[in-house]
Amino acid sequence: MTDGDVVLVGVDGSPASLNAVDWAAAYARVHGCPIHLVCSYTVPSFAAAGLDGGYAAVDDTVLAQGAAAVLAEAEERLSGSGVTVTSATASGDAAAVLVDLSRGASLVVVGTRGRGGFAERLLGTVSSALPAHAHCPTVVVPYRAEGESTVQRESHQHWPVTREVLPVRRIVVGVDGSPSAELALERAIVEAEAWGAELTAVAAVPVGTGAGLLAWLPAAVDHEAVLRDVAEGLDVVVDRALTDHPDVQVRRHVLDGVGSALLTEFSTAVDMVVVGSRGRGGFAGLLLGSTSQAVLHHSACPVMVVTTKTHDAPTTPHW
């Protein structure tokens, strides 16, 4: 285990974040690495009357105590798990804190409630911004009480916390030929090897008529030939990624459709979806790419986002 082989978990005391803690513990056991829990808090400031436009900061003692209580609950939850656990509170924006700490981690895990409407579109600032800017892969764990339908989940205001975490037995990874997708494929192979999971690589080609993005192709173009060409390219990419993993078997599927829709559909039948994203800066990076963004919004299972920043070697943690 290297200095960077630690799972960083953002917690805030919500059922969704505690569910993410459970998932992270299962991951840490499989990979034999420790967990570092982080709870951040932001100290609000208010305009101070008569101080020439200055600001008076609220005493952060109570906030720090609350964050410490959240960590204590999460640590108690992991007692007896067999996983080494450390924790720390941090003052600052949660997403910014986790992005900074991700430089010394091998994985960051956060939860999301995945509610409907505008809240679902944004996922919350942490689970939306973090995957785009983290320096290691990020896993976003959707929270749903056992046996609960999507409609029921969206109508809940208070959810019971479930402790059961299903093992990762089936993984699907989206492959589109981009550098970030190849990194996602490489990481998916590592995960499949660690979990002993079945791995399926999916390439989506919207060549069909109707809403297909390539429906404008001339009628003379052989759509089946397009699919065959993509399948050959997928084989090349997968075979190259398997060079150092000869015992891993990867199923390959080239399907007519939109990548985000297909991966979201797969998420109802698998235990983890792995996607790549360019992780660019600025507003484009904040929202990720269209595919990874859409999958994060609607996936029924945990989603691992791998960006090109993961090429950087992890630095020594400073917690």
Rank of each mutant, 00 (worst) to 15 (best):
A219P: 11
V108E: 09
L199P: 01
L213P: 05
V11D: 09
R280C: 09
H36T: 08
A284P: 05
V274H: 05
G282N: 02
E73K: 11
V6A: 00
L263D: 11
A192H: 04
E186L: 08
C301E: 04
L101K: 13
S260G: 14
V274A: 06
P302W: 09
V109K: 03
L122T: 15
S155Q: 15
A95P: 09
W159P: 04
N19S: 13
L78M: 12
H31P: 06
R240P: 00
T150W: 08
G282P: 05
P137E: 00
V295K: 08
V7L: 12
F266K: 05
F283S: 02
A211T: 14
G208C: 06
T61M: 02
Y41G: 02
V306W: 09
H298W: 04
T268F: 13
T138I: 03
W216R: 14
A211P: 09
A26L: 14
G233D: 08
E154V: 10
A269H: 15
E182Q: 12
A192D: 07
T150H: 15
P206A: 06
L130N: 03
V273Q: 00
R187H: 13
G32E: 08
V172S: 07
D59V: 10
T264P: 07
D229L: 09
Q152F: 01
Q65H: 09
A28G: 10
L183G: 10
V207Y: 02
P137Y: 03
A24F: 03
P160N: 12
R144F: 01
T162N: 15
L51F: 13
A188V: 04
P15T: 05
E198W: 00
H135W: 14
S180L: 01
T307L: 06
E148A: 00
E265W: 06
C39A: 15
D3T: 05
H253V: 15
V161D: 00
P131T: 10
L214R: 03
Y55C: 07
A28D: 05
V248A: 03
L217G: 01
H298L: 06
E182H: 08
D12C: 05
P142I: 03
G111A: 06
T209W: 02
H36K: 09
S260M: 05
A56V: 14
G4D: 03
Y41F: 13
V205I: 12
S40H: 10
L130E: 03
Y55I: 14
V139L: 02
P246W: 04
L262R: 06
V165H: 01
F283N: 05
S290H: 11
V230P: 07
H31K: 13
S102Y: 06
P142A: 04
P44I: 11
F46P: 04
S106H: 07
A28N: 02
R29Y: 03
E146M: 02
V172P: 08
Q249A: 14
A231T: 14
R121W: 10
V70A: 01
T268E: 15
T2L: 09
R115S: 09
P34T: 07
A74P: 07
G53T: 11
S180N: 11
A26N: 01
A261C: 01
Q157W: 11
V83R: 11
V38N: 07
A201I: 05
W195N: 13
L287Q: 11
L287M: 14
R278I: 03
S45P: 01
G82F: 13
T243R: 09
E265A: 15
